[in-house]
């Protein structure tokens, strides 16, 4: 847990706290925070602002039967909810498992060429999120971004021109950044990657391949 070196930014954590982050990025935030107590504490601090705002807010009249209706909701399902946690030794924390429908073996990978595989977990007009699996030593196609891209390492590690990213590390890239991550020799590198715009590949063949990648 204390090995994580690359964290979420305050902007991203506050946007998650305020509820204004697109779904794809929320999944990366929820997954990283599940692995990183530093970012959990920072997120909780931003949530504390929300608590102060709600406490300070004016009040609005409830419906006449509001309390009775709420008690009826509770009566319909009075059990305390089990804590949501992945079991020890899982590759994926609980929020990611909710999207995959299980841990790593449940992922439905599709080949995208060059030994690289991916599984799209969610796509909308605003954002998309997918799992990417890169064999050790293999380079990702050179790509820039039209928007923001967040990449969280779940297994293995990758390097780019700037740094090394291992399990739990998250890289946040903006549109100015052109980088060519390469998976470290050894085991496959598995990442969770969210973008708020389709990726733009610089090399010719990956650009043609892009429609098939569905990103």
């Amino acid at each position: 847990m204390n090995e994580i070196k690359h964290h979420l930014t305050d902007e991203v954590l506050m946007a998650y706290s305020a509820g204004s982050l697109p779904e794809a990025f929320e999944l990366v935030v929820a997954t990283h925070v599940s692995m990183c107590d530093d970012c959990r504490a920072r997120l909780d601090a931003f949530d504390a602002i929300g608590g102060a705002v709600i406490e300070d807010a004016e009040t609005v009249a409830l419906w006449e039967n509001s309390l009775e209706a709420t008690l009826a909701l509770i009566d319909a399902a009075p059990e305390f909810e089990a804590p949501r946690r992945a079991t020890n030794g899982s590759a994926f924390p609980a929020p990611l498992q909710d999207y995959v429908g299980g841990d790593l073996p449940a992922v439905k990978w599709r080949s995208v060429g060059g030994g690289v595989r991916q599984a799209v977990l969610s796509r909308s007009k605003k954002s998309s999120v997918r799992l990417i699996r890169i064999p050790g030593g293999v380079r990702m196609p050179d790509h820039g971004h039209r928007g923001m891209e967040m990449t969280l390492v779940l297994k293995g590690a990758f390097r780019d021109e700037h740094d090394r990213f291992g399990r739990g590390d998250v890289e946040i890239a903006n549109e100015d950044m052109h980088h060519t991550p390469i998976a470290e020799e050894g085991e496959d590198c598995i990442c969770l990657a969210a973008t708020d715009a389709p990726l733009r590949f610089n090399a010719f063949i990956p650009r043609i391949a892009q429609p098939f990648l569905r990103i």
């Binding site: 706290s17 509820g19 779904e23 929320e26 999944l27 935030v29 929820a30 997954t31 925070v33 599940s34 959990r40 997120l43 909780d44 949530d47 504390a48 929300g50 608590g51 102060a52 705002v53 709600i54 406490e55 804590p83 949501r84 946690r85 992945a86 924390p93 609980a94 929020p95 909710d98 999207y99």
Partner: peptide, 25 residues
Amino acid sequence: STWIFTIARNRRIDMLRKQRRPKPE
């Protein structure tokens, strides 16, 4: 109040999207 804020915020997003918002463990 912080805890209730997080519950209300998550419920709001769940209802808007008609699916559960990704939440930390």
